[in-house]
Design a protein around this nucleic acid. Sequence first.
DNA 1: CGCTTAATTGAACATACTCAAAATTTGTGG
DNA 2: CCACAAATTTTGAGTATGTTCAATTAAGCG
Lengths: 238, 238
Amino acid sequence: MGKKQALNIPTCNACANGNNLICHLSHGQQAALSEFKLEAVFRKGSVIFREGDRPNGLFCIHKGKVKVTKLTNSGREQVVRLSKEGEILGYRALFAGEEYTATATALEDCEICQLSKERFYELMTANPEFNRAILQMLAQDVRRAEDTWTDQNQKGAKARVAEAILYLYRKFGTEADGRTLSVSLSRQDIADLAGVASETAIRSLSFLDAEGILGLEGKVIRILNMHSLEQLSVEHNA
Amino acid sequence: MGKKQALNIPTCNACANGNNLICHLSHGQQAALSEFKLEAVFRKGSVIFREGDRPNGLFCIHKGKVKVTKLTNSGREQVVRLSKEGEILGYRALFAGEEYTATATALEDCEICQLSKERFYELMTANPEFNRAILQMLAQDVRRAEDTWTDQNQKGAKARVAEAILYLYRKFGTEADGRTLSVSLSRQDIADLAGVASETAIRSLSFLDAEGILGLEGKVIRILNMHSLEQLSVEHNA
DNA sequence: CGCTTAATTGAACATACTCAAAATTTGTGG
DNA sequence: CCACAAATTTTGAGTATGTTCAATTAAGCG
């Protein structure tokens, strides 16, 4: 599991989709970043970095989805965030000068590059716009963490699960039909995302299914009534 | 409330205590930052900035303590962080390019400077060390938010309250006796910090008092048994 | 096809919340 | 300085909600 193997990701601009960080770099800078990258395949379920490890680089996801989790004292796992192609991983610990405080695990087979942190820092000083983008990303991370924190503290289980489904929708989007989530998680992962016990997540999902808000077929989840789902996710107690 | 009035804070190096952000600036740079600062007094209870406001500068606390809170849908308030002299306020929204997502309120009479964001940005590009320090601060904020989030989700009320008291201890320290917290909060504020109802906070505090871990005399809180307090704060269910 | 893991359902239980009332503290004006 | 009003703090009781534990069913995989 998690064996590194030769790949063929030519340069970092292969990851410059949408408006991710890489897009803020010139072609030359992308090439410079590419120079020292290490490519690796992580099989589904394998760990990319682990809580307590010391970071010595940054990860950039070329292909695949990743979950980042924190282990709590009581043995529960909290999904802190999910990441997909084009996103950078492990920057928080690096910038904070700390060990990793969360564990990153491949949700499916992934192709991930490890970037040189020195090269990354060089680009940050050379490219103020790039620097600003990173600052912005971190500042948004703070907000999201604070939002989820306060949200989960106040909301009932159904609202939390609804919110978790909406997160999946916004993050990964849907299939061509516009309603089938294009990510497949275990019930446990959904529970860990919503911050509830798996049984509670299952019961909440069943409820949403019975209400016609979601369509469940095993791990395939369809959003049938977006409006109601959003409504539910906002309410204090559903 | 919150009236601005003339003060006499000569330059920003008056705020360079300990190892806060200002310390990373040269004397000349501190002077440059001072040039455009607006001084203001905020009376106890007055609002420094409000959720939804658009930031047009940064605040630097010269004197006094501040609470930063988020209002939840159910009308509860969550204390997101507390700040004291020498700390910068309102940078998250600025760097994220967003409106404020929390409200800052003076816990006691405060003297606060408003700094020019343009000047601040200039210093960030001019001084890479300063830039790094800000990045580090944001990255640490992310961790703290994520830690508290997951902690509060898993811990029982007593552990949360114990954690809240420890936060106060670590942030503001004690009087000369080494045990009396040098910050005075309402029970509601302690509850909002711990993320529990005020009645629950009171009951937990009473328990800690009865156990001889804390000494309560109205708003004056003494830590009598640090070891037990730390123990309790870690346990899943106290 | 058997075995292991994941998903589901059920029931008892614990915990913190809500609502309500009493007690205490704080602030203010006479 | 006292008396009164307002706000805060404290205590109590009932309730809702999610957790835990256990058992069953379904699904994935060699």
